[in-house]
Design a binder for these strands. Structure first.
Length: 1029
RNA sequence: GCCGAAGUGGCGGAAUGGUAGACGCAAUUGACUCAAAAUCAAUCGAUGGCAACAUCAUGGGAGUUCAACUCUCCCCUUCGGCACCA
C-alpha cells in the first residue's frame, strides 16, 4: 500500500461524493419511511475576509453529528446558506463602487471554496441566500402576514387583523384585550364614523408590524443614522466610531415589530427546550419580566386638582414611605401642567439638557443623579393622603413602566442616592428581621416586645470599642453594650444607664444614631418567653477611661468587658449587630423584605402580604412589566429587503402577494442621502410609486431561513406544508433537532427567530411552537496569543493552509480533540501533529490488516474496539467530541498491541472514525472492499449491513456487544481510611469475601492496618474495598 | 453593582462521590541513521530517598463523608451577559 497522501485522497473522494450526491437529502415523499433528523449550523455572513480556523469548529461538530445520524439510517437534513444583506457588503460597495450583489457573489465564492475542502456533508442543492429575490420574496410575504395581524392577549395568540375589524364593527374597542399602543376608547358607532385614514391609523396601533416614531443616532457630518455599536464616547458626548463626528438624537419614522406581545411566551417557551442554561438565562434577563403594581397619585396645584400620575412599583409594601414622586423628563404631564409650574424656566432648562444626553451616558449608573422639583404642584399619596413634592429626573426612564416612579428613599438605592443629594426626607416603613440562630424563638411561647438599645462605644484615646464576652447560657458569645429601654426612660437615658452598668463609664457622649429600626427575634429561655427586640443602634464615644467606676459583681458574673479593634468587632458580634455596625459606618437603604411599620393599619404585616393588601386598598392593580421593547424593523440603508408597502393618498397598502418579490431597484449611489433617509428615497420611480424607502434590518432574513431549507425551491409557498410537517416534528416543542452556533446571538437572532416562529405557529404556518429543540454553542478558537483571531492583530490562521499541509481529516480531528466543544481555546499549531500521527497510524494499521487478512482479533484489542464503539457513540450524542477522539486513540493503541485484528473489526473502527475523518476512512474502507471482492472467502457476514453500499458514510453505525466489554479479571483498589494502598487483580467471579480476605493478606495492607481490626469495611463492587480504622 | 460560567502538570485537557492527571503536545533518554528528520521503545505533578516507598498536591479557607477535583458554605481570580428596569 502507498504512503498516506492526504491531498490525493481528499481530492478524489470530494469529487466522488459531489458527483454521486452521497449526502443528498431526500424530500419527505422520497424518504421511504426513513426518520428525519435536522442538523443545522447558524449560516454565516459571507464577509470579505473569508474563514479562519475558528469558523469551521461549529460546522465540524455539527457535521460529525449529521454523519453519525446518516450512518444510523436517518434521512438527515444538513444544509448551508448565506445571510448576505447588511452593512459590510454595502460599505464594501461604496468603497469599491461596485454593486453589493457583486461583492456578495465574490465573497460567497471564497467561502464556498474554503468550506468545500473541509469534508462537510452538506446537501449543497439546498443552499439559500437571503439576498436572492426568490428567497426574500418570502421574507416579504412573512412581513405582510405579521403586518396583517394583531395580538389577542386573552387567547395569548396572534390573529388576523380582519377579525379585529369585525370586533370593532360590533362593539368598538371596548373590552378588547389586545396588545396595542392605542389609548383611546371608541364604540362601534364611532368606528363606523371614522374616515378610512382614521381607521387605518387606529389599526396601526394594533398591528404586529407597525409604523411609529423613535429616536435614532443621527450623525449630521456623515449624513446617516448609526447603530449603537457604531458610536463611541467622545470628550463632549457621543461621536461616530468612523471619523469621530458628533452624534445626536433625531426622531425618525420607523417600522416596528411588536415583539413585546410575545414577551411572556418567549420566557415560558424556553422551559422544554434543550438549550444551554446560560443562554436561557440571558434571554430571560433580556426580556426582564417583573410583577408589580400600578398605583395612581392625584396631582394638585395650589388652586385645584389637576391630574394624576400613574406609577409602577414592585414594592407596593413601601407605599407609606413615599416622600416624593419622580417623572421622567419625557413624561407628558410636564408639558400638560406648564401653567401650574412656578419654576418653569428652571425645569425647561433641565429638560433641554436631558435631551442632549445620549442613552449610553444617561444609562450609566456611576453618573451622579440630577433632577429638578416641579414647584407649584404636589402629589397626594393615596395610602395616607400625604402631600409630597413632584420632581423630574432623568434616572427615571420613559420607556419602562409608566415613566413615573414613587420614590421611597429608605428602601430603594436610587431614590436613596437622589434624596441624599437633594436633602429630601426619608421614612422607614419596613423593618428587617433578624432571627437569633443560637436561640431562635420557640413555637408556642408568648412573645414579649421591648425596645433594645445597642451601644457601639469607642474609646477615642485608643480607638478601641467596648465588647462584652458573655457567660452562663450565652457562654462564648461576644456583643456590644446593649440593654432594654425601661418604661418612662428615654432611649438616650437607657444608653447611658447600660454604659454605666456594663462598663463603669459615666462620661460617654452621643455621636450618632442609626436611622433605621430593626427587629431581633430570640427565645429568652430562662424566662420561658420569646422576645422581639425593636432595635436601635448608637455610636457613643469617651475621651479616656478616666473616672471609670467599678462594675458590680453581678454584672461581672454575667459578662466580661474588654476593648477590641473595629475589625474584631465586625467579625465577632452576632449577625444582627454586624448589620447595625455596618449601617452605623455607612447608611444604606433597607432593600430586603421585612415587617411593616409606620404604615397605619398595615403595621406588622410581612412585605409580601402588604404588597397585595396595600395595592388593593388604594385601588391599584397588579401588573406585569417587561424590559423587552418592541424591535425597530427598519434601516435607512440600501442593502436590505424592501418593505413591501406603498402609500397612496395617505393610506398605506401592501404590495399584492402576486407582485412579490418587490425587488430592490438599481441606484446610482449607495451613499447615504444626507437626510437620514435610505438611498431608495433618491430613486424617482420608487418614490413616485409610493414605496417605503426604509429597508428591513439584518435580522429579517435570518429569522426564518431554517424553514426554507425544508423546501428551498418552492415557488408557491415559503415551504411545502408536508415538508414542514416532516422536518419539524411535532413530538418536539422545537423543530430543528440540533442547532449549532455561537453564543453571541442569544439576544438577537435566537430571540427574533423564536418570535417569528411563534407568530407563524399561531397562524398555522408551522407545526411546532418553537424553532430549535436543541441548541449548542461552539467555543471560539483564539490565536495562540490568547486574543481573538483578527486581521488587526495579524494572528489569523487560514484553514486552507492547514488543509494543504496536514489535510482536512487532521484539521477536523484536531478541532474536535482540542477541548470541550463549548469552551474557547487557543490554537496551537504544535499540537496538530498529534491527530496527524494518529491518522498515519490508522493508515499503517489498515495496511497491516490488508496484509494479514485475519479473521480473528486478539481479546484485548476486541474489548478495546467494543469499548470504543460504546464511548464514541455516547460521546457524539452528548457533544463530547474531544473524549470521543481520545477513545479512538486509546482503541488504536490497543489494536497496535494486539497480535491480530480482523478485517471485520477494523471496519467497525473505520466506521467510528468516519464522522471525524471522512476522507481517510472512506479510502481505507474501499481498499478493504476491493480486497474482499477479490477474495470472496474473506467476506464476513455483517448482519447490520446486508446490502453492501459503496460509501462508508452510508454503511451503518457499528454496535457493541456488552459481553465483549468485560475481561475475566478486574482490578480492585484496597484503601485504608480512604487512602489507596494496594491494587488487587482478581477474577471477575470473586466475591466480596474473597476480595476482603485477599486484601487482609496483603503485606502492604497489613502494615497500614497495624494489627487493628477495622471498624468498618466498605465494598464498592468491581471497584474498591476500604478499611476504616 | 446584579446574573451566569469557570479555576486541575510546562501546555490543551480527562475523571461528576471510589486508583487525580486518561488522551494528545512539549521535554528527556535509548534504538535505527554517516548525520538529521521521521519512526519505534522508555521516562515524564512536586518534595525526600540508591530503592522499595512515603509525604504533599485539583485557586484559598472551613464543612459533610469511610472516601471530595466532584457535594455545602465563605473568600479570591478570570471570562461572559445585563447595567438607573422602579
Amino acid at each position: 500500500m502507498n504512503n498516506y497522501d492526504h491531498t490525493k485522497i481528499e481530492k478524489k473522494w470530494q469529487k466522488e461524493w459531489d458527483t454521486k450526491k452521497t449526502y443528498a437529502t431526500a424530500s419527505s415523499k422520497k424518504a421511504k419511511g426513513k426518520k428525519p433528523f435536522y442538523v443545522l449550523d447558524m449560516f454565516p455572513y459571507p464577509s470579505g475576509a473569508g474563514l479562519h480556523v475558528g469558523h469551521p469548529r461549529g460546522y465540524i461538530g455539527s457535521d460529525v453529528i449529521a454523519r453519525k445520524m446518516r450512518m444510523e439510517g436517518y434521512n438527515v437534513l444538513h444544509p448551508m446558506g448565506y445571510d448576505a444583506f447588511g452593512l459590510p457588503a454595502e460599505q464594501y460597495a461604496i468603497q469599491n463602487n461596485i454593486h453589493p450583489r457583486k461583492a456578495v457573489e465574490q465573497n460567497v465564492k471564497t467561502f464556498e471554496h474554503q468550506l468545500s475542502i473541509l469534508g462537510l456533508s452538506y446537501d449543497w442543492s439546498r443552499k439559500i441566500n437571503t439576498t436572492d429575490p426568490e428567497y426574500y420574496k418570502w421574507t416579504q410575504w412573512i412581513f405582510e402576514k405579521i403586518y396583517e395581524s394583531w395580538f389577542d392577549t386573552e387567547k395569548n395568540s396572534a390573529r388576523p387583523i380582519a377579525e379585529l375589524v369585525a370586533l370593532f364593527e360590533k362593539r368598538g374597542n371596548v373590552g378588547i384585550s389586545a396588545c396595542s399602543s392605542n389609548t383611546q376608547l371608541f364604540s362601534a358607532k364611532e368606528w363606523l364614523l371614522m374616515s378610512e385614514m382614521e381607521k387605518q391609523n387606529t389599526l396601526m396601533q394594533y398591528r404586529l408590524a407597525y409604523e411609529g416614531y423613535s429616536e435614532v443616532n443621527w450623525c449630521p457630518e456623515l449624513g446617516t443614522v448609526l447603530a449603537n455599536d457604531e458610536i463611541v464616547d467622545g470628550p463632549n458626548g457621543p461621536v461616530s466610531e468612523r471619523g469621530g463626528y458628533p452624534v445626536e438624537k433625531k426622531t425618525m419614522r420607523q417600522w416596528f415589530m411588536r415583539i413585546t406581545a410575545y414577551a411572556d411566551r418567549l420566557i415560558s417557551g424556553l422551559d422544554n427546550l434543550d438549550w444551554p442554561s446560560h443562554i436561557k438565562e440571558i434571554q430571560k434577563n433580556w426580556i426582564g419580566k417583573s410583577e408589580g403594581a400600578e398605583i395612581e397619585f392625584k396631582v394638585e396645584s395650589v388652586k385645584s386638582k389637576v391630574g394624576t400620575i400613574k406609577v409602577f412599583t414592585t414594592r407596593a409594601d413601601t407605599l407609606f414611605g413615599v416622600t416624593y414622586v419622580v417623572l421622567a423628563p419625557e413624561h407628558p404631564l410636564i408639558s400638560n401642567l406648564k401653567s401650574q409650574i412656578s419654576n418653569l424656566t428652571e425645569v425647561e432648562q433641565y429638560l433641554a439638557e436631558a435631551k442632549k444626553k445620549d442613552d449610553i451616558i444617561r444609562a450609566s449608573t456611576d453618573k451622579e443623579k440630577s433632577g429638578v422639583e416641579l414647584k407649584g404642584i404636589r402629589a397626594i399619596n393615596p395610602a395616607n393622603g400625604e402631600e409630597v413634592p413632584v420632581w423630574v429626573a432623568d434616572y427615571v426612564l420613559p420607556q419602562y413602566g409608566t415613566g413615573a416612579v414613587m420614590a421611597v428613599p429608605a428602601h430603594d438605592e436610587r431614590d436613596f442616592a437622589f434624596a441624599k443629594k437633594y436633602n429630601l426626607p426619608m421614612k422607614q416603613v419596613v423593618k428587617p428581621v433578624f432571627i437569633d440562630p443560637i436561640n431562635p424563638p420557640r413555637f408556642g411561647l408568648s412573645e414579649v416586645v421591648r425596645n433594645t438599645v445597642y451601644i457601639f462605644l469607642k474609646n477615642k484615646q485608643t480607638g478601641l470599642y467596648a465588647l462584652l464576652r458573655w457567660h452562663g447560657t450565652l457562654e462564648g458569645i461576644t456583643t456590644v453594650v446593649m440593654g432594654g429601654q425601661e418604661e418612662g426612660e428615654t432611649r438616650e437615658e437607657a444608653c447611658l444607664k447600660e454604659i454605666k452598668e456594663e462598663t463603669g463609664l459615666v462620661n460617654a457622649c452621643f455621636v450618632k444614631e442609626m436611622p433605621w429600626v430593626s427587629d431581633a427575634k430570640y427565645c429568652a429561655s430562662h424566662k420561658n418567653q420569646n422576645r422581639l427586640s425593636i432595635s436601635y443602634a448608637y455610636l457613643y464615644e469617651i475621651d479616656s477611661l478616666d473616672g471609670q467606676i467599678l462594675v458590680s459583681e453581678e454584672e461581672k458574673k454575667l459578662a466580661t468587658l474588654y476593648w477590641g479593634t473595629a475589625e474584631e468587632l465586625a467579625k465577632k458580634v452576632p449577625e444582627h449587630q454586624k448589620y447595625l455596625w455596618a449601617q452605623l459606618c455607612v447608611v444604606s437603604p433597607v432593600l430586603n423584605d421585612g415587617l411593616l411599620m409606620n404604615s397605619g393599619k398595615f403595621d406588622g404585616l410581612s412585605s409580601e402580604e402588604a404588597r397585595e393588601k396595600i395595592t388593593q386598598s388604594v385601588g391599584g392593580r397588579i401588573v406585569t412589566k417587561f424590559k423587552l421593547r418592541d424591535a425597530i424593523f427598519a434601516r435607512q440603508r440600501y442593502w436590505g429587503e424592501p418593505i413591501p408597502l406603498f402609500t397612496k393618498d395617505g393610506i398605506i397598502h401592501e404590495v399584492a402577494e402576486k407582485k412579490l418579490p418587490l425587488e430592490l431597484p438599481n441606484v446610482k449611489s449607495y451613499e447615504p442621502t444626507g437626510t437620514g433617509e435610505s438611498p431608495l428615497a433618491g430613486v424617482a420611480s420608487w418614490v413616485k410609486a409610493g414605496y417605503e424607502t426604509n429597508t428591513m434590518p439584518g435580522w429579517a432574513g435570518s429569522s426564518w431561513y431554517f424553514l426554507r431549507y425544508a423546501d428551498p425551491k418552492n415557488k408557491k409557498a415559503f415551504a411545502d406544508k408536508n415538508e414542514l410537517d416532516y422536518w419539524f416534528d411535532k413530538k418536539n416543542q422545537g423543530g430543528v433537532d440540533v442547532y449549532v452556533g455561537g453564543a453571541e446571538h442569544s439576544t438577537g437572532h435566537l430571540l427574533y427567530s423564536r418570535f417569528w416562529h411563534q407568530f407563524l405557529f399561531d397562524m398555522g404556518f408551522v407545526p411546532t411552537p418553537e424553532p430549535f429543540q436543541m441548541l449548542r454553542n461552539q467555543g471560539m478558537i483564539l490565536a495562540s496569543d490568547g486574543r481573538k483571531m483578527s486581521k488587526r492583530w495579524g494572528n489569523v490562521i487560514n484553514p486552507d493552509d492547514i488543509v494543504k499541509t496536514y489535510g482536512a481529516d487532521t484539521l477536523r480531528l484536531y478541532e474536535m480533540f482540542i477541548g470541550p466543544f463549548d469552551s474557547s481555546l487557543p490554537w496551537q499549531t504544535d499540537s496538530i501533529i498529534g491527530p496527524r500521527r494518529f491518522i498515519e497510524r490508522v493508515w499503517k494499521m489498515g495496511a497491516r490488516v490488508l496484509e494479514t487478512k485475519s479473521k480473528t482479533t486478539s481479546a484485548d484489542a476486541e474489548r478495546a474496539i467494543h469499548f470504543a464503539i460504546k464511548k464514541v457513540s455516547e460521546d457524539i450524542a452528548s457533544f463530547g467530541f474531544n473524549t470521543a477522539v481520545s477513545a479512538m486513540m486509546i482503541c488504536l493503541n490497543e489494536m497496535e498491541k494486539g497480535e491480530t485484528i480482523s478485517i471485520a473489526d477494523f471496519k467497525k473502527f473505520l466506521q467510528l472514525l468516519a464522522p471525524f475523518a471522512p476522507y481517510v476512512s472512506e479510502e481505507l474502507w474501499h481498499e478493504i472492499s476491493n480486497l474482499e471482492s477479490r477474495n470472496s472467502n474473506l467476506q464476513i457476514q455483517d448482519t447490520r449491513n446486508e446490502i453492501q453500499v459503496s460509501s462508508i458514510h452510508l454503511s451503518g453505525w457499528p454496535m457493541f456487544d456488552p459481553a465483549k466489554l468485560v475481561s475475566d479479571t478486574m482490578t480492585i483498589v484496597v484503601s485504608v481510611n480512604g487512602k489507596p494502598r494496594e491494587h488487587l487483580t482478581v477474577a471477575r467471579t470473586a466475591t466480596q469475601k474473597d476480595i476482603e480476605d485477599m486484601a487482609r493478606q496483603s503485606e502492604k495492607v497489613q502494615t497500614f492496618l497495624q494489627g487493628v481490626e477495622p471498624k468498618r469495611v466498605i465494598y464498592v463492587p468491581e471497584k474498591l474495598i476500604n478499611f476504616v480504622l
